[in-house]
Write a protein that binds this DNA or RNA. Structure first.
Lengths: 172, 172
DNA sequence: AATTAAAATTAAGGTATCTTAAGAAATGAA
DNA sequence: TTCATTTCTTAAGATACCTTAATTTTAATT
C-alpha cells in the first residue's frame, strides 16, 4: 500500500506548452503557483478554453491520461508558473492505493463532474451575459487576473462581444 | 464492510416525474428498462436536456444528492420505464464501503467527467450541425428511439432548426 | 522614457440560430 | 377507423452573436 508520491516542483514560463492536441498525456499537472490553461483549437482554427488551473488546481486531459488516447487539448502556461507533474506511476496502480486515497480521488472526480454539469447547463440555457456574470460570481479572483480574451474564450464568445457585454453592464 | 444494497424494481409511466427543480435529490435512479431524462427550465421557460438515461444508466442531480442542495434539474420518464432507486443509505457511508466499490464509483465518475468535458468542448467549438452528427455517432441507438425535439434540446438548438439541419444533411 | 507588442474598445455589416405561425405527418386514444 | 394530440416541417422575419477592421489603451521590452 502506498499513497501518492510527489515529484519535484518544476517551473514554466508564460506561453510555454506542456501538452499538445493529439499527443498522449503522460502527466497530470498540479499547479502550485501561477496559472495554466487547457484549450482546443477547432476546425476553423479558433481557440476554446476548457479549463483554467490556478494555484492548487490539477490539469490534464483526463481521457488521454487514463486511456492513452490522443489528447483533445493543449496545456499551456498563461503566467510564469510552478507545478508538480504527476505520472501514472507516481499514482501507482489503483489497487496499490490506500482506500482513503481512492476516496479522495473519487471526491475530486465527483466535484469536477458537478462543476462540468453546471457549465453544460449554462452553455445550454444562459445568454452570454448571464454566463459572464456567473463566471464573475464563481471565479471572482480570476476576473482580476485573466485577460478578457481568455474569459471570453472560456464562456464561449468572442472578445469583441464580451467587450460589448461589459459596456452594456456598465451602463446600467 | 458492505457493498451496495439493491432496492426493489419500480415502474413509472411516460411523463411522470421523479424529481423537481428546487427539491433535494434523495435518490439516484438506476434505469433497468425504458428511458428517463433530466432537464432544466431556464429563465425564459425553455427546457434543456442535461442527460438521457436509457437501460443501465444512472441518473440524478449529483450535487443535490451529495450535498443536499436544491436540484437544478427535473427527472422525468420519457418512456414507460423500470428503475431501482438508490438512496444514500443504500450506498452506506463511503468509509463503510469496500475499496473495490469505491474504485468502481471513482471509475464511473471519471468516465462521466470525460464525457461531460467532451460535451463542453462540443458546445464551445462545434456548430449545431456538427453537434448533431456527433450525437448520432455517439448515441446511434438513441436516435431511433427519441423524438427529434428531445435531441434538439440536448444538443442545444430548437426543434425547428434541427429539422432544417436534417433537411440540409439529406440534400447532400 | 521610448518603442513595440498585446489587449481592449468601438462600429458596421454578416450569419447562425431563434421566434412565430401555420400546415402536414405521425402517434395515441376512443 | 376516426378523432385528438403530439411531433415534425416549412418559411419569413427577428436577434444574438460573429467577422472584419480601425483605433485606443495597456502592458512588455529595450
Amino acid at each position: 500500500m502506498k499513497s501518492v508520491k510527489l515529484s519535484p516542483l518544476k517551473t514554466i514560463s508564460k506561453g510555454e506548452m506542456l501538452l499538445s492536441q493529439g499527443e498522449i498525456a503522460n502527466y497530470g499537472y498540479l499547479v502550485k503557483k501561477g496559472c495554466l490553461k487547457s484549450y482546443t483549437i477547432d476546425a476553423a482554427g479558433k481557440e476554446h478554453i476548457v479549463q483554467f488551473a490556478p494555484e492548487n488546481w490539477m490539469i490534464s486531459d483526463l481521457d488521454s491520461f487514463t486511456n492513452r488516447v490522443p489528447s483533445l487539448v493543449f496545456i499551456e502556461a498563461i503566467e510564469n508558473s510552478e507545478y508538480i507533474p504527476l505520472s501514472k506511476s507516481d499514482f501507482g496502480a489503483v489497487n496499490e492505493l490506500e482506500k482513503e486515497a481512492v476516496v479522495e480521488i473519487a471526491n475530486k472526480y465527483r466535484n469536477n463532474l458537478i462543476a462540468a454539469n453546471k457549465r453544460i447547463i449554462g452553455l445550454l440555457s444562459a445568454t452570454a451575459e448571464q454566463r459572464y456574470l456567473a463566471f464573475t460570481d464563481t471565479y471572482p479572483t480570476l476576473i482580476q487576473r485573466l485577460p478578457l480574451k481568455l474569459i471570453a474564450s472560456y464562456i464561449g464568445v468572442t472578445p469583441e462581444y464580451l467587450s460589448d457585454i461589459r459596456r452594456k453592464i456598465a451602463k446600467k
